[in-house]
């Protein structure tokens, strides 16, 4: 790689000469300008949704969201909170409050479980030596490529009726996973999310944990620390940025998940999460789709809070600081 090159060639004479004067300062500001350009472009679609969430159905359908200030004049009804009150007051599919509660129950556990399990596994793959480690690791991560939809029906069968297998030749059936009646319940969603999340979680955490400085582990081992202690006292604190990153994603995915929850819970509306409640609002043929504008914002609040809360863990130099200290 380039880093292995001697410094003389890395910093060639021609390249180090700087542009001078105003041009340089202008060029220096380009990244900031480009960044804010990205921000604006990325935000416009969401902004449109946000403004439309205050407009009536007819207004949403008939004029662009940037014309919102003329809705009244155009006869579409002026800006209103009706969409929000309809969404918050819905009684369909168990009601929104119930849905949000279920979403929370699903997302919290389905975030904590995979993080914990994956952190241990990632540590083992990175720092415990055993035969076949790399192969097992790659095989695990390769399961990322399984389209998870194909697992939905077998898992549902297992939750509904347990897993049984008939032994060949002797024709006896034994139970591998008892029929705990999990189908239609939130624990079924936990288990499913946890399993589906693990390959990516292990992949991401392993990438980070295996990059921690080797000296750290060696000095700890000389001090007589066992793997569990090293994991708890060293690896976990050092991995906070990546744990925060994964927490954000896993929380979002589980919070915003529609398909897995609906499939595992099915017709048990007491347990359905907010995404299903909101999607149901639109009705058959999407007749009331204009309500989804408000619905989308109502359920976005929680993941955004999570993002803001965890963002402060992306701090420079945690690794470097600890190595020194």
């Amino acid at each position: 790689m380039t880093t292995t090159k001697p410094p003389e060639t890395s910093y060639g004479i021609g390249e180090t000469k700087q542009l001078t004067g105003r041009v340089a300062s202008l060029l220096g500001q380009i990244p900031t300008w480009v960044l804010w350009f990205f921000v604006v472009v990325w935000t416009i679609p969401t902004l449109g949704l946000f403004i439309n969430s205050f407009r009536t159905r007819d207004a949403q359908r008939n004029s662009g969201w940037w014309m919102f200030w003329q809705d009244g004049a155009n006869g579409y009804g002026s800006l209103t909170l009706d969409n929000y009150s309809d969404v918050l007051g819905t009684s369909a599919t168990g009601g929104l409050a119930n849905g949000l509660l279920n979403s929370m129950a699903i997302a919290v556990v389905a975030t904590i479980l995979p993080i914990a399990i994956a952190a241990f596994a990632a540590y083992a793959f990175a720092w415990i030596d055993f035969k076949g480690r790399d192969t097992l690791f790659i095989a695990t991560v390769a399961l990322l490529a399984v389209p998870s939809q194909v697992a939905l029906i077998p898992l549902l069968q297992m939750y509904a009726g347990g897993a049984h297998l008939t032994l060949p030749l002797i024709d006896k059936t034994i139970t591998v996973f008892p029929d705990l009646g999990l189908a239609g319940t939130i624990p079924a969603v936990w288990l499913t999310h946890t399993g589906f999340a693990l390959p990516f979680a292990i992949f991401l955490l392993h990438n980070y944990i295996s990059g921690l400085p080797r000296d750290l582990f060696e000095s700890a081992r000389i001090d007589g620390a066992d793997h569990f202690t090293i994991f708890r006292k060293l690896v976990l604190p050092l991995s906070i940025p990546v744990l925060a990153a994964f927490t954000i994603f896993q929380f979002l995915w589980t919070w915003n998940d529609y398909l897995i929850a609906l499939t595992m819970i099915g017709g048990n509306r007491q347990a359905l999460p907010a995404t299903v409640v909101i999607a149901s609002l639109a009705g058959e043929f999407g007749r009331l789709e204009h309500l989804l504008t408000a619905g989308a914002f109502v359920i976005t609040v929680v993941p955004l809070v999570v993002f803001f809360a965890l963002q402060r863990f992306f701090v420079r130099g945690i690794t470097a600081g600890s190595v020194k200290g």
Binding site: T32, P45, Y258, T293, Q311
Partner: peptide, 30 residues
């Protein structure tokens, strides 16, 4: 290296936080 890093990142991140149901509606409007 820019000022307002967290604000900028939050805006870019926003689409991830919006559920798929919302994203479908958004892009219909686009």
């Amino acid at each position: 290296r820019s000022k307002g890093e967290n604000v900028a990142k939050s805006f870019i991140f926003m689409p991830m936080a919006i559920s798929f149901v919302g994203a479908g509606i958004i892009w219909r409007f686009m």
